[in-house]
Amino acid sequence: MSPIAFLILATLTISSALLVVFSRNPIYSVLWLVICFFSITGHYILLDAHFLAAVNLIVYTGAIMVLFLFVIMLLNLNKETEPHKPVYLKAAAVLSGSLLMIILAASLQGYANQPPAIISESFGTAKGVGKVLFTDFLLPFEVASVLFITAMVGSVILAKKHVND
């Protein structure tokens, strides 16, 4: 059952990711990206990471992509405003993208021969993730939340035109 599900999901993920890049209409790009995130959520479920799957769906698909869509809809992009990049920039983008792909592929080289990881009963559930976050990874977790506060304060300051002291 799950190899077939994986194949379907993988095909969906890769084809929707390609369509994000190849769509002419930015709205369609965003919608393909939504489908891409959706299928990645499916991968999380196949990997038993249920909590991560739900949070990915809520945060990325449900909130961040809606804001993306929101901005692009209001920008009213069309053929006339389409930016044209010079050729050397396109070549550089292709080159750096390919390099990144080689590095990613190289880093995954040894993984095929490794035995499957042994996971505990609570792996991927809200309980399990919560315990790990508040014991082993407490400091990174708190630092990440400070980062979020900084971003929020920054955006409030940018949005306010005149900041009175």
Binding site: H50, G62, V66, L69, F70, A126
Partner: peptide, 24 residues
């Protein structure tokens, strides 16, 4: 589901796409 409440939340947060796509 052991994440039942979160599942409902996730689906509800997707509900806005129908309205946004239709409206645009």
């Amino acid at each position: 589901l052991n994440i039942g409440v979160l599942y409902v939340f996730a689906v509800v947060s997707l509900g806005v796409y129908g309205i946004m796509i239709g409206g645009w």
